[in-house]
Computed example of a mutant assay.
Amino acid sequence: MIFRLLALILLPIMAYYFAKSISQKFKLNARQNQILFLIMSALLIVAVLIALGRLPIHFIFAPLGAFGAFVLRFLPTLMRLLPFWQMLMSKRASAKPRGENQVSTIRTQYLEMVLNHDTGVMDGRVLCGGNSGKQLSELSLHSLLDVLGECQGDMDSLQVLEAYLDRQHEGWRQQHAGQASSSAGEAESVMTRDLALEILGLPADASDEDIVKAHRSMMQRLHPDRGGSDYLAKKINAAKDFLVD
C-alpha cells in the first residue's frame, strides 16, 4: 500500500522533471513540447496503472520497455526532424488547389469587372454615370452602349467594357459603327502590387507559384485566340510580370 502511494506521488514528479530536462536540453519549441507532453502522459498513465495493480506487469513490461528505450534513444532525433516534417506538410498544403469561386477583379474609373475563374463568367458593376450601381448583366445592349459612350474619357474603362461586349453581345460593333472607341482616352492606370493581385484574384501573401498558376488559368479562358480580348490579356500579363519580375 505504501509502495503504491509513493508511486502515485513520485511518478508524476519524476515525469515532470524528466520532460523538463529534455525540453531545456534540446530547446524544444511549443509544438515539440506538446508532443513530448503527450508521450510522457501516456507513459505516466501506464506506470500508474502498473503501480496500482490494474495492469499486469507481464503483459506490459516488454512492450513498455521497448517503447521506453525507443523514446530515450530516438526522441532527440525525432524532435530535430519535426521542423522538416512541418515544412513538408506546409508545402503540400500550399500546393493544394484553392477553393471554388475564386474571382479576379479589375477596377477602373467607371467599372468594376469581376471574372469567376471556375465558370469563366464575367460581369461588372457601373460605378458612375447614368447607370451607376447597376450590373452590366442587367442592362440592355442599348444601355451598355450608353455606358460605353460615358467611358470615352477613360481608356481602361473603355477597353474593359469592349471586352465584355465582345463576349456577351456579338455584333455590337456594327450597331456602334462610326465611333472610334479606341481613339479616346487617357493614359492607362499605373500597375501596383495591390492592383496586380486584384486582377489575378490572389491574396496579399500569394507565392510566385500561386501567381503563375492564376495567370495560366486566366489566360486559358481570356486569351484572344479563345474568345478573350487583347486588353484583358494585356492586363493579366502585366499583373503577372509585375509580381514575378
Results as ranks from 00 to 15, higher is better:
Gly178Phe: 13
Thr108Val: 07
Glu150Gly: 10
Glu112His: 03
Lys134Val: 08
Asp230Tyr: 13
Gln34Gly: 15
Glu150His: 10
Leu78Ala: 15
Lys27Thr: 05
Arg221Ala: 06
Lys134Ala: 03
Val114Met: 10
Ser181His: 14
Leu222Cys: 09
Leu81Tyr: 09
Asn116Ser: 04
Gly53Pro: 00
Phe61Gly: 08
Gly120Arg: 03
Val103Ser: 07
Ser41Cys: 02
Ser90Val: 01
Met155Tyr: 13
Glu170Ile: 05
Leu49Cys: 15
Gln109Pro: 01
Ile9Met: 15
Ser157Tyr: 02
Pro203Trp: 11
Ala19Asn: 12
Ala93Thr: 06
Met113Ile: 15
Thr108Ser: 15
Leu222Glu: 12
Ser182Glu: 10
Leu232Gln: 15
Leu200Met: 12
Ala93Cys: 03
Ser90Phe: 07
His169Val: 04
Met218Ser: 12
Leu64Ser: 05
Ser181Arg: 15
Leu75Trp: 13
Asn29Ala: 05
Phe18Ser: 15
Ser104Asn: 06
Asn131Ala: 06
Leu5Gln: 06
Leu136Val: 12
Gly129Met: 04
Cys151Pro: 07
Ala42Tyr: 14
Asp205Pro: 00
Asp225His: 14
Ile45Cys: 11
Ala239Pro: 04
Ala163Leu: 04
Tyr110Cys: 12
Met89Cys: 11
Gln175Gly: 13
Leu52Gln: 10
Leu200Phe: 09
Ala30Cys: 04
Ser104Asp: 02
Ser137Lys: 13
Thr192Gly: 00
Gly201Ile: 00
Leu139Phe: 08
Leu55Phe: 14
Ser181Ile: 11
Gly129Lys: 09
Met191Asp: 01
Lys213Asp: 09
Ser21Cys: 02
Ser94Met: 12
Leu141Val: 06
His215Asn: 08
Gln168Ala: 05
Ser183Cys: 07
Ala163Asn: 13
Glu186Asp: 12
Glu198Met: 09
Leu111Asn: 11
Lys240Val: 02
Lys234Cys: 03
Thr192Val: 05
Met113Thr: 11
Leu38Phe: 05
Leu6Asp: 11
Ala206Trp: 12
Leu232Asn: 05
Gly228Lys: 08
Ser104Glu: 00
Leu82Val: 11
Ala163Asp: 15
Ile45Lys: 02
Ile22Ser: 05
Phe84Ile: 03
Glu188Cys: 08
Ile57Met: 08
Thr192Cys: 02
Ile199Leu: 13
Ala187Asp: 08
Leu148Trp: 04
Ala206Asp: 03
Glu112Val: 05
Ser132Met: 12
Gly68Leu: 10
Leu49Asp: 09
Ala163Ser: 11
Val103Leu: 03
Asn131Met: 04
Leu145Ala: 01
Phe61Cys: 04
Phe67Arg: 07
Asp208Glu: 13
Gly185Arg: 01
Pro203Gln: 02
Ala69Leu: 14
